[in-house]
Design a protein around this nucleic acid. Structure first.
Lengths: 345, 345
DNA sequence: CTGAAAGCGCTTACAG
DNA sequence: CTGAAAGCGCTTACAG
């Protein structure tokens, strides 16, 4: 049984086929004409020896890694698989491999985990890369595409994101117009989280458009997760703040809001309407069904890859791709949706 | 602004520090003593030039990729992030990178996507790798660890999986003992899916232990997903088959079961008890809360990495790691769990 | 402790 | 269309 150290190399193939290694390389890469009969012989030798070209050698010689990197800081339960699915799909149809790195671990690392030394370009999700590293990569003209994050001042990096503001406007306007809500709590996301900031802007615009004065007291800081949302709602209620609706920031937070309201015996949506953002899997399964915004996350992944590949091909990429969001009405806002969404429970 | 082709190399660093490239290599790798003062100079030069060693060159020269690969066939919504999280966590604390490849795309690929040429070892989830390729890799002694799949005849490959059979036994016994159910439908998973087969075995054992005769008519073939489960349930009911409980195969399928039963105005759990498997995020959010089995998926990922690293270090790995599963009782089985699970809605 | 040199396994002008 | 040869950027015995 052969051990790893005795794997066949291109020379073994060349020898067996009676050609030079250059010729073997050419039939493998198929970019230079080779006489059909010779090519046949080479292919046979490859098959017989079960030869697989060493990636590192190809990369070193060709200066192309044929790999793109994905950097993210956190696998948010409901969100991430969709993004990854879109990325994988688009990537495979273009022959690149994917190297994934999540930056939330703070173990000291020897080698730089991901960058120009092992990928041809990078997909960066939100703020998962330090500014300094981003600047360095940008400085060496390394192909970059951001997702859900506007590039820092002065850097022209393509960004793919969703219509956060529009989504928030749709949500809040719906609460006001259809359900007459006027004291709408907004649960922020994490500090400096861009999605959250745009949603807040949409929240304020919608209020303004309906001549409702913005009340600082209705703003709470969540973390786009269940627990902090639960706590914030508890605090609001303990403080005796009145409200007739909650824009939870995202769906995960909405769960925390549900829990807090139910515990306080406040009926959703009669006493308090609740809306989320993302339309994750459980949004239609909870009771009442969550009215929320559908964001085309998978498409964000696909588009990010497309733009990056433009860059890799030396073509111009779009500076900003804004994906449309869509209002998904269920029952938590006060609508009677029974029977409408046939996939809902 | 430097372009990618003019990035500094180890020679640039050596020159600037006034040493040989061998010395630079030594301070980078830290495996050979270097005089402190010299090392300082080298580090300074590295910093000044913003030098990052090219991975491909390191790999080619050292014959180590420092990367492990993950092969899977499908990102199942609720399942995958947990697995990935465990893998990432364990990997980072050991200095390896992760290369991910999903095999469900059938685009013809030039280069072999993942294997001995670009990784030091492979994590394989269920049947995502063709037998032939598995045999080839095994044949060259390439480090492999399987997850949720027993190795083919004659191959000694470590496998990490969960107590599927035990879980099923717990579930079915609970339905029988606590709730007096005797006509329990079992919804299989995809053909040849090992998790499914073990669950079925557990189902049968539990029946047998309670002297309930196995009825072929109560077995339906699902796909571990909502839609096929929905259809199968429709068929069963249309055929007039009687049953007082459903073991849905997994949680995703349970959703389809819920939908079909509700549409037929059968009350869960009064008319029909339902149980799932996996305890995915939505299991506690649906109504009634789903009684299911909690599987330590994240731990499966971590353990798989640990075993693979054993192999990479030339140590012996365990041939089988069976992770314990746990019964999570909510209301869909007929229990009164209100107030018990304080995180449930 | 340090350097010169061979070598890792490919790709790609350059000739022919 | 094909081969000889240089080169990709590192690591690592081998001397010293």
């Amino acid at each position: 049984m052969p051990s790893k150290s005795s794997l066949p190399t291109i020379s073994d193939v060349a020898q067996r086929a009676g050609v030079s290694i250059a010729t073997v390389s050419r039939v493998i890469n198929g970019n230079t004409p080779v006489v059909a009969e010779t090519a046949q012989r080479v292919r046979l030798a490859i098959k017989e020896l079960k030869f697989v070209p060493r990636a590192a050698a190809q990369v070193l010689a060709s200066r192309k890694t044929n790999t793109i990197g994905l950097v993210f800081s956190e696998i948010r339960g409901a969100f991430f698989p969709h993004l990854l699915k879109g990325i994988e799909a688009e990537l495979h149809s273009s022959g690149y491999e994917l190297l994934i790195y999540s930056t939330h671990s703070d173990h000291p690392i020897q080698r730089k985990p991901i960058g120009e030394h092992n990928t041809d370009g990078l997909l960066v999700f939100t703020t998962s890369l330090e500014l300094e590293e981003l600047e360095r990569l940008y400085g060496i003209n390394f192909p970059l595409v951001l997702m859900h994050e506007t590039p820092p001042q002065g850097m022209e990096i393509p960004v793919i994101t969703i219509e956060n503001k529009d989504g928030a406007v749709m949500l809040v306007s719906h609460l006001i117009e259809k359900h007459g809500r006027r004291r709408i709590v907004f649960l922020r996301g994490p500090e400096g989280h861009e999605d959250s900031e745009w949603r807040e802007r949409g929240y304020r615009e919608a209020l303004e458009a309906h001549k409702i004065v913005y009340d600082e007291g209705l703003i709470a800081r969540g973390e786009f997760d269940e627990d902090s949302a639960f706590e914030e709602m508890q605090k609001l209620m303990a403080a005796g703040i009145e409200f007739d609706a909650v824009f939870a920031g995202d769906d995960d937070a909405a769960i925390g809001v549900y829990r807090a309201l139910k515990m306080a015996n406040r009926i959703i949506p009669d006493d308090v309407a609740v809306v989320g953002f993302d339309d994750v899997q459980f949004a239609r399964y909870i009771s009442p069904g969550l009215t929320t915004i559908r964001a085309p996350i998978e498409e964000v992944g696909r588009e990010a890859v497309r733009q990056l590949i433009c860059l890799l091909n030396g073509e111009q990429a779009q500076r900003l791709v804004l994906m449309r969001t869509e209002l998904v009405i269920r029952e938590s806002c006060g609508c009677q949706n029974k029977g409408g969404g046939e996939r809902d429970l």
